[in-house]
Design a protein around this nucleic acid. Structure first.
Lengths: 339, 339
DNA sequence: CTGTTAGCGCCTTCAT
DNA sequence: ATGAAGGCGCTAACAG
């Protein structure tokens, strides 16, 4: 079971080949200026000849750093997390860091162990929209330091980078309200979801702001299928507009609604969250709140980089999503009676 | 710049705490049966008390394996690679392996260096649809062993897992031919793409098989935008059906065609490759050849696992995509004259 | 400026 | 069944 990998030259062999001590090789290879230029030449030549480069493993052990960060995400199939991962990975790569991924597959209690395990192989860990309860998260973070948290409220022991789902919700509701909608159904997502709470809070505020506005909430999930499965309940609710937990749910709903011959937005308006890459190409194109996911990833790396450098921990970041009005929302149809 | 990570207990401390030598701790923790059960208890208790677990780094160095594999992919934004990565990551995780990702961002000459670099931090590397020329790939593979290649023709020094794009192309063309199409335009993708050559070859065969069938080829690319940009050329070509390099290109084309008021499939049929998650929800829903990407990832890991175990290298695998007929293809409209 | 020495934290013969 | 010692490959004090 020992990997048969190509046998590589060691620093000792290079030292022998160049006729110097291995510390000189180490110094020369690491650009230590206190080495005779001529020796540097000899060493580099020997290294090149033997195809030598220092073992990252051995360096990691002695240096105490791995040049790697780990990223824990709830679901690699979710376009938003893919985008975050992408931004993160590109940014980290630019700074010469590697990325270890861990997909918890939405198994909440896997998150803690994955974070802890991968942390030991990396210099820090980025928790992407962790699903675990707030107290658990708070308890976990100190043991993970340096850590960065994405899409959760500001934390005590880690910088946070998040999209402001509350603001996004407000924008979406105002948009629907402007269109005359007074009965809205919110399809909520993962039970303990932090961004879900933010949405709910914004919904409650909207109701206070607009007497006569009724917003019901119905449990769904975070994926396409749960959206499709909600279609009948949506129809039965009597709502003239539905706010889906995210674009995936909205698309599932759109699809199931289409099957039932329900017209969108004539019969009912549908909006989502995130603006995933394909939201513009559903039929009808989806109104949504665009979350700058790639940017979230980039910023998460920036925060981690700062921590790694020993800089001041960056303050919590909250990016405001942009309302993107497309064709899936329209004027409310006349309803019989609001009760 | 040394990561300030939480200071952890070492094996020496556990040994002291349990009043045994550190070899006993090592043996106890690794389940070596030649240890007094009572001592095992003591050691485990001490370890638990100190929150100890062996440093993966130190183990990697001495054991010569990292329990990690690296995956090099051309573009994290491509749904197909996302799906492959997902299948791979889940399968590897089940076997206790970690995954290091490297996104070459379609920079062909980055692939070699990324593969080499990440290989040193991992026990093997999986090259996902590498874009590099065949000779370069062949030259690189031996130095990477154990390596697995996805979506390239069978290789000398590495197992390959691929989708049979030739068969997929044939299925798609037969489908279009059955519908009466005699002038088809193929929007080709990345210039050196291996799967692209497979498509072209299958196209040529189809022409031989069906005298009277004309298939033109036009260079596009692999993304949404290139599909959209091809719309005018597609219209000018006089083809009654177009085969896009992949679903992304097809969707871009569909979108641009819609903008121009061209009806699909009444005016022109459009088909793609891959069956990415949203292909079913374009308008009209896209006819395509479904590539089992997640399964490719799973098999890639299986092959790597075999290599790591020292088993016989698995023979090349070629999965046949499944033709998925949806609404974007229909009977050919009558054309004026075929020449 | 260069070589020698001591670890980084762990596993594994080798003795006992 | 247990302990002592060597070494994985490298870097960094410490001499010289």
């Amino acid at each position: 079971m020992r990997a048969p990998g190509p046998k590589r030259a060691t620093i000792t062999q290079v030292a022998a080949h160049a006729g110097v001590s291995l510390s000189t090789v180490s110094r020369a290879m690491n650009g230590n200026p206190t080495v005779d230029p001529e020796l540097v030449e000899r060493v580099k030549a020997a290294a090149a000849e033997l195809g030598y480069s220092a073992s990252p493993l051995a360096r990691s052990l002695v240096l105490g750093r791995t040049q790697t960060i780990s990223v824990v995400i709830p679901d690699l199939a979710n376009p938003v997390f893919q985008a975050i991962l992408r931004g993160l990975s590109h940014a980290a790569a630019e700074d010469g860091y590697h990325v270890l991924i861990a997909d918890s597959a939405e198994q909440v209690h896997e998150e803690t162990v994955l974070a802890a395990t991968t942390r030991r192989r990396a210099d820090g860990v980025i928790l992407c929209a962790p699903r675990m309860p707030a107290d658990e998260l708070a308890a976990l973070l100190p043991s993970l330091a340096p850590a960065v948290v994405v899409n959760r409220p500001p934390q005590q022991h880690a910088p946070t980078i998040a999209a402001d789902y509350g603001a996004a919700t407000t924008a979406l509701v105002e948009h629907l309200h402007d269109l005359g909608h007074r009965r809205i159904l919110f399809l909520s997502g993962a039970p303990g979801s932090a961004s879900g709470s933010a949405r709910s809070a914004a919904l409650a505020e909207a109701c206070e702001r607009h007497p006569g506005l009724e917003i019901a909430e119905r449990a769904a999930s975070v994926d396409f299928d749960s959206g499709a499965a909600s279609a009948d309940a949506v129809l039965a609710s009597g709502a003239t507009a539905v706010l889906a937990f995210n674009d995936l749910v909205a698309m599932g709903l759109l699809s199931a609604l289409g099957t039932r011959g329900v017209r969108v937005p004539e019969d009912i308006s549908v909006a989502g969250f995130d603006d995933i890459p394909f939201a513009a190409f559903t039929s009808p194109p989806l109104t949504t709140a665009a979350v700058p996911a790639t940017e979230l990833g980039r910023l998460a790396w920036a925060a981690m980089g700062a921590l790694l450098r020993g800089d001041e921990p960056p303050p919590p970041v909250a990016l405001t999503p942009r309302l993107v009005v497309r064709a899936s929302t329209g004027p409310a149809r006349a309803t019989s009676s609001p009760g």
